[in-house]
Design a protein around this nucleic acid. Sequence first.
DNA 1: GCCTTACTACGAAACTTTTCGTAAATAAAT
DNA 2: ATTTATTTACGAAAAGTTTCGTAGTAAGGC
Lengths: 127, 127
Amino acid sequence: MKPLPRPTESELAILQILWENGPSTVRFVNETLNQEREVGYTTTLKLMQIMAEKGLVLRNTASRTHIYRPAISEPETQRGLLDKFVDTAFRGSAIKLVMQALGPHKASKEELAAIKAMIEAKEKDNQ
Amino acid sequence: MKPLPRPTESELAILQILWENGPSTVRFVNETLNQEREVGYTTTLKLMQIMAEKGLVLRNTASRTHIYRPAISEPETQRGLLDKFVDTAFRGSAIKLVMQALGPHKASKEELAAIKAMIEAKEKDNQ
DNA sequence: GCCTTACTACGAAACTTTTCGTAAATAAAT
DNA sequence: ATTTATTTACGAAAAGTTTCGTAGTAAGGC
């Protein structure tokens, strides 16, 4: 099994709709996309067909209207994209990326506590 | 002044060489790139010319061999790329990105301390 | 049954990014 | 001075991504 390719930006937008809403038709995906910006129906269809070829989505073709679903989870996908991004934009330094990401961001008490907990766990690992 | 466009992946690779080594010639940049993968000299030249047009780099054309330098700092560039990336890959949630990035990463004591300090500073802000 | 609508398949155009070949100019080497 | 090497400029091909038009086929409404 060859590993799945990273999705392109448009493909990612489609995957996000599938992750959020579960297995969906092209029409539903297209209508959801159109809440953001205008996209032709066949444009969405074509993209989803390409994604099926690449293995990024699976589709049930039992009925005439095909049902698409993601072939990979959102966290797995994010991991792949993040690894690439850390390499290209931060020369491999995840820490620098974290600092940059935290910098201007308004975080809630709970979020900060969660990160802190994670860091404290890692500090224990280090010993 | 229009804000500078985000660099593409290849452009980013060139910027990184300039950030790391200071003002450089096309030849130097090309040779550095070639340590990673084979790229033709005119390919690198063309990219750098395009970057100059876009305003991503500045060049000194006083002597025949032009000297290029970045027009924007690495952190500024990273910030722009990160904002876009958080939006597209993490649907705007910087916190999720941070958690993902910290997850598998081996961090040193000092790095963890630095992040922790930043978080504690933010916790104070919140109150 | 017939017409309208909805869906998939396919191909190609449009756009972006990357790659490189060729030509012209300048400098260096012999 | 002539040749050789180095550099920029330019244009266009190649590759990747996104967009959509057209055709064919199945389904639904009348």
